[in-house]
Write a protein that binds this DNA or RNA. Structure first.
Length: 416
RNA sequence: GUGGUCAUAGCUCAAUAGGUAGAGCACCAGGUUGUGAUCCUGGCGGUUGGGGGUUCAAGUCCCCUUGGCCACCCCA
């Protein structure tokens, strides 16, 4: 066992996997960029107040934050999510041109018990839009996430939407829920949840709570006409775009700041409890809570790790390896390889080489393992005749050739 | 945080009722003078996650601890 290993819930992403990470991020950046979103990069560390504004009924804030006092005695926390940071950034810089459309990618930290698809340091990609109340924006935001999954090649993704209504609707509904559950048969844990946040009882997976949850009042009965209209516009927009969705009246989300439209993407292939690939919603009021002007906002965050798990389940990744163009085998000391790889790279070819002056057989094995289509071989004969061997590595790629040393680059350019 | 389960070479796993650790892959070196991918031979490699206990003897039993996984919880 190694003397040191990663902390619980944290891990190294090794070269074998990072290609997928880069692809995922590249796809996301492309989609967000094509819709007029700019990237925002916010600090990993924020004043803890930025996050406590999110709400005191969510475990993310009350139990799971990596908070501590820095050397200046500031109470800070590693960010447990991105939305609050983005809203803080908006309140701090007050961009004049609205809407402010941004996307981001990065790590978040939550001190939870790790499981598959649930890490203490986990990555998200997401977007936030501040300053527009339009229900059509809700449609755009949801559609972008949908497009992203499609662009990755995922097909088993289910979109679930709901509306929490206007703040007053939501408040009235919460009271109705409280009344209902207080007179219902709930488990002990269910009662504890009820005391903190009645909405979350709807999320219970305990059998003992199932009957009470099934009999609970539904949010749809509490919508004001504005909320109902907003939600109807969102749904008709999704239909117009041909995006399949399911309305789930019992969908509630973990963070307390959501109002009106909320949505979640579930992976059809993920049978574990961690099947939420991503989610988001409207959070009008969050910027104000962070000291900014009253500003409507909406966005989503998608879990990179879970999305990658879904990609793996659906087999959307082909061969990730990106071999170099050329592998240089030098059995005359290595100086030739130094010069040749430098020339090749300067000419635009990617090139790797063998080291430690190993035997030709050993270096050829390295060349083979590198999957480079071509090997350049330099031995005594080549040095003596001022030439190199250019050897195609594939079985059916023909014979090797001896090329004049000075013609190497031009020869490769002609044949590639 | 609660409950359950697992932990053996770099990786995937073996090891009869406790008797003192093995295979495949990978890696390295050879297979008659420069050339890989197949094949053959050999080699490297583990105080069996860590600590303590029971026993003549523990990878195999007990306790503690660390970590993975699963469920609850929470959420992406």
């Amino acid at each position: 066992m190694p003397a040191f290993q990663t902390s619980p819930g944290m891990r190294d992403i090794l070269p074998a996997d990072t290609a997928r990470w880069r692809r995922l991020n590249a796809v996301f950046a492309e989609i967000a960029g094509s819709a007029g979103y700019g990237q925002v990069i916010t600090p990993l560390l924020e004043d803890i107040g930025v996050f406590t504004r999110i709400g005191d009924a969510t475990d993310v804030v009350t139990k799971e934050m990596y908070d501590f006092r820095d050397k200046g005695d500031r109470h800070v926390s590693l960010r447990p999510e991105m939305t609050a940071s983005v809203c803080r950034s908006f309140a701090q810089h007050r961009p004049a041109a609205l809407p402010w459309k941004v996307w981001y990618t990065g790590s978040n930290f939550r001190y939870e018990k790790p499981q598959r698809g649930r890490f203490r340091q986990f990555d998200q990609v997401g977007i936030e839009v501040l300053g527009v109340d339009d229900a059509h924006l809700d449609v755009e935001v949801i559609a972008l996430a949908w497009e992203f999954y499609a662009a990755l090649g995922l097909t088993e993704v289910n979109l679930i939407v709901n509306s929490l209504g206007e703040p007053e609707d939501r408040a009235a509904y919460v009271e109705a829920l409280r009344t209902h559950f207080e007179s219902s048969d709930l488990t002990e844990q269910g009662r504890a949840t009820l005391a903190k946040n009645p909405l979350r009882v709807l999320d219970s997976k305990r059998e003992g709570d199932a009957a009470a949850v099934a009999a609970a009042p539904t949010i749809a009965d509490f919508y004001s006409s504005e909320a109902a209209q907003h939600f109807a516009t969102v749904q008709s927009g999704l239909q117009r775009l041909g995006i399949p969705y399911t309305v789930e009246p019992k969908l509630v989300r973990g963070l307390d700041y959501y109002r009106r439209t909320i949505f979640e993407f579930q992976g059809g292939t993920l049978d574990s409890a961690q099947n939420a690939l991503g989610g988001g919603g409207r959070y009008d009021g969050l910027v104000e809570a962070l000291g900014g002007p009253a500003t409507p906002g909406i966005g989503f965050a998608l879990g990179v790790d879970r999305t990658l798990l879904a990609c793996e389940d659906e087999g959307v990744f082909g061969d990730d390896t990106a071999p170099v163009d050329v592998f240089v085998v030098d059995v005359v000391g290595g100086q030739e390889a130094v010069a040749i790889t430098a020339e090749l790279r300067a000419a635009g070819f990617s090139a790797d080489r063998g080291y430690d002056n190993r035997s030709m057989k050993a270096q050829m094995k390295l060349a083979n393992r590198s999957a480079a289509p071509l090997a350049i071989i330099v031995g005594e004969e080549e040095v003596a005749s001022d030439s190199v061997i250019v050897r195609p590595m594939a079985r059916d790629a023909g014979d090797q050739q001896r090329i004049s040393r000075s013609d190497l680059i031009s020869h490769l350019k002609e044949t590639s």
